[in-house]
Design a protein around this nucleic acid. Structure first.
Length: 259
DNA sequence: ATGGCTATATGTTATAGA
């Protein structure tokens, strides 16, 4: 079972790039972030035409997550538990049924800039809520995959210019500690495990020739529960997508599970 | 690089992203 995550930065602006990538990479499941669309405006038809079931959790203008799956999806839930007043669409879960059932979480973790400030407070509170949800998912002792745009640079080697990020919400010590608190519950970070060398990136800014200069950061991650990690066969990054016509500023990240 | 580009809707400018 091939599972991918892709921050597409606007699904309506990216539908041609998205369908081209889906045909090329042929993931069984694609978790999308920053769809920037309400559910009613989500371009379902061209995706269903490629054989995907579509589940969305959108909002107007910003944020928004979705799951595309060629396999059946069950028990779809929307929203990160723990704060009924949070209206931002950043979390969706579903169980995908292949040879085995896998619980999927698609997430768009808050950016948090500027830090300090209310947006950073929201980011840290959101990460604590995510830790609580992650702990509950581990207790099921089933394969769980939490994948998406974490907006966290875990280590200096995950940025081409780490010195440029020292005051940024993506790289502050408190952000990285909150990420480790989730990871250290017992998750495996798929790309770090399979591609441990430095200089592996998933995002290149549109500005200042960041792509041409390979001034990237690694912020899109896939965390696997122990039961999912046991099924891990391969993992990779579709870096070439960043050089395509009208690309997202992120590229897809994927895993292959024996499931 | 001191926010240089991109997408959306709040729409011919403001907001957010990272």
């Amino acid at each position: 079972m091939k599972i991918a995550t892709f921050n597409i930065n606007g699904v309506k602006a990216r539908i041609e790039a998205l369908t081209a990538w889906l045909e090329e990479a042929a993931p069984d499941v694609a978790l999308l972030q920053e769809i920037k669309s309400v559910d009613e405006a989500f371009p379902r038809e061209p995706l269903e035409a490629l054989g995907y079931n579509v589940e969305t959790h959108g909002q107007k203008g910003f944020n928004g997550v979705a799951i595309l799956s060629k396999l059946p999806l069950e028990d779809v839930t929307r929203g990160l538990p723990g704060d009924g007043s949070d209206e931002q669409a950043r979390w969706i879960e579903a169980t995908v049924v292949g040879r085995r059932a896998v619980r999927l979480c698609g997430l768009y973790l808050p950016n948090g800039n500027p830090a300090p400030g209310p947006k950073y407070d929201y980011k840290l509170a959101w990460m604590e809520r995510m830790r609580t949800r992650a702990a509950a998912l581990l207790e099921t002792e089933e394969p769980v995959v939490m994948a998406g745009d974490y907006n966290v640079i875990p280590q200096p080697e995950d940025a081409a210019r780490p010195e440029a990020w020292t005051e940024d919400a993506l790289f502050l010590p408190e952000t990285r500690a909150a990420f480790r608190r989730i990871l250290n519950l017992g998750f495996t970070e798929a790309i770090r495990t399979r591609m441990p060398q430095p200089g592996i990136y998933t995002f290149w800014d549109y500005q200042a020739g960041a792509w041409e200069r390979n001034n990237g950061i690694r912020i899109d991650h896939m965390l696997l529960s122990p039961q999912a990690a046991d099924l891990l066969r391969d993992a990779g990054i579709d870096k070439d997508q960043r050089a395509r016509e009208k690309p997202s500023d992120h590229v897809p990240v994927w895993i292959e599970l024996d499931a």
